[in-house]
């Protein structure tokens, strides 16, 4: 059964789209990640124009973050004050990001920039996760290994505009979360991701937030940042396809339900190792895309 996607302006099999949503939903359920960083490249592999993949994914992440954050709210795992500072940065960054996106699109460079951004971030995150999981698997076998220091002080703690974040038990410069939010906001706009895969490590290692509130707080601000991206992409580039987003979401919701159940049965380190391999595979495919000599050096874009 084919469906004509009104914004992507291509015809696609409905079950392919729902299946893709379901598969990424399953992974995000198993690993507890957002999945945007896999969904956008996979949509591009399936032939969805890269800008539409990015704009649409932002819209879908609004939905998945809303459904994810509710559980965290119930458990009180959201540091709203920290979330708002991150959000201020996120709105700033994503607005710049969408403007940059529109400019790059006009210059005909958006596709390669999207791919390169994914290569860099998937490559870094994938290798870090792989090393981390290998190390913890090895450490579990070596008794007596010691843990490192939990919280380190460095020059970042000397920045001005100090603010107290009760829930995170932190007294740090507000500039720090603002900048983290802004950086992730730019990436969110250009890559069509929530940015949780960068935000979460940054919150733990850079800001020193307790892990319990990290995921809820990151989801909280992702809702508003991706909503901002959805709005601005709709206005500036018309790349948000709600039919595609709706179908992906439908699949993702179902996939995530199975995923969480499977995830509960598997071991953490092995899980992370597996996710790392998936991430690195997608990264590798993207590397081939930009490095191998294309079949045709010329490409066309039919304009209005």
């Amino acid at each position: 059964m084919y469906i004509y996607l009104p914004i992507a302006e291509i015809s696609m099999n409905v079950f392919t789209i729902i299946g893709l949503g379901g598969m990424v939903g399953l992974l995000s359920g198993i690993f507890g990640v957002g999945g945007g960083f896999l969904m956008t490249p996979l949509l591009i592999f399936l032939g969805v124009p890269a800008p539409v993949a990015v704009g649409t994914e932002a819209n879908q992440i609004v939905a998945s973050s809303v459904s994810g954050v509710l559980a965290h709210f119930r458990r009180g795992n959201v540091d709203i004050k920290m979330g708002l500072v991150l959000l201020a940065g996120g709105l700033f960054g994503s607005t710049i990001g969408v403007a940059l996106f529109a400019l790059l699109r006009e210059l005909g460079q958006i596709d390669v920039v999207i791919k390169l951004s994914f290569i860099v971030f998937l490559g870094i995150i994938g290798s870090l996760m792989l090393f981390e999981s290998i190390r913890s698997i090895l450490r579990a076998r070596l008794p007596g290994a010691r843990r490192g220091k939990l919280h380190q002080h460095n020059w970042l703690h000397g920045l001005p505009f100090k603010m107290r974040f009760r829930k995170s038990k932190l007294y740090i410069s507000a500039l720090l979360p603002f900048l983290v939010g802004a950086l992730v906001g730019v990436l969110s706009a250009i890559m069509g991701v929530g940015g949780g895969f960068i935000m979460v490590p940054a919150m733990i290692y850079l800001l020193g937030m307790p892990t319990a509130v990290v995921v809820g707080t990151s989801l909280f601000q992702i809702i508003f940042v991706t909503a901002n991206v959805t709005f601005l992409q709709s206005v500036q580039t018309q790349t948000v396809d709600i039919v595609l987003a709706g179908l992906l979401l439908f699949g993702a919701v179902i996939g995530a339900q199975f995923g969480t159940r499977i995830g509960a049965m598997l071991k953490g380190e092995q899980l992370r190792g597996l996710l790392a391999l998936i991430v690195l595979m997608v990264c590798f495919k993207l590397v081939l895309d930009v490095v191998l000599t294309p079949d045709d050096l010329f490409s066309l874009e039919i304009l209005r």
């Binding site: 879908q60 998945s64 559980a71 709709s234």
Partner: peptide, 28 residues
Amino acid sequence: IYNVAHSYAPFYGIFAIVFAVGAGWLAA
């Protein structure tokens, strides 16, 4: 959908957000 997205882009953007929030809430 195509016409609304191109002729009433801000409205379309807001609708897309409301739709996503509603769908996410419903799923939860």
